[in-house]
Amino acid sequence: MKSLDDLLRDASADWLQQARPTLVETADELAGQLRPTRWHRLAMGGVSVAAVIGAAWWLLSQTPSVQEPPRMTVQAQVQTPVATQVQQNRVDAPDAAPSTSPTRPSAKDATASVESEMPTQLMADGTVDGFTAEYERVLARAMQFESTDPLRAANEYLGLGRLCLVRKQWAHAASALQRSEELARRGQFLHLMPEIQRQLAIAQQRLRN
């Protein structure tokens, strides 16, 4: 003769025995549903990261006009002297600029590139704290050397990037450093790349924050 507790335990054990296949089957079925969920999450995570990177890249390329609208009311005031200098470069520079690499663009191409990209990308800030003047001066010099001495131009843009970082002009810094990186890559100035990329990373990090 058993106690009530023993009888209750026996009854429970028997029920458990009956239910065991169901318990196993249900667990397997739900675990099976979990696997695609996890892969789906991972995939969605990858897509999200790619979207964030894409958005950040787009923002960086738009920074002067989107994130830091020019404080200067008349942009032409900045553009004019630089454009004049560029025009002057075009006159002064020989049509066939000395080229050390077949991949290096011609002087005309470089000048056209400067005219089309730089004024909208880099020339913006019209403050009167001394930064603007120096910024414009370095920028004009960098643009001037783009066609005649790409190595020096890359260095000038790197210096411009550093200047902007010191003055906490993150968007301008990123633009200048990207230009420097582009010139260094095009001219195979690999010794400049680590420093450019280090500074660029700082600028991009600051922009994100």
Partner: peptide
């Protein structure tokens, strides 16, 4: 962890809740 798709966590949790739940259903 289960909500995040962790199968091992699901097995562990299932082990804990399945028997009480079955009793409740019964």
């Amino acid at each position: 962890r289960v909500a995040d798709g962790d199968e091992r966590a699901f097995r562990e949790l299932y082990e804990e809740v399945s028997r009480p739940l079955l009793a409740y259903c019964l």
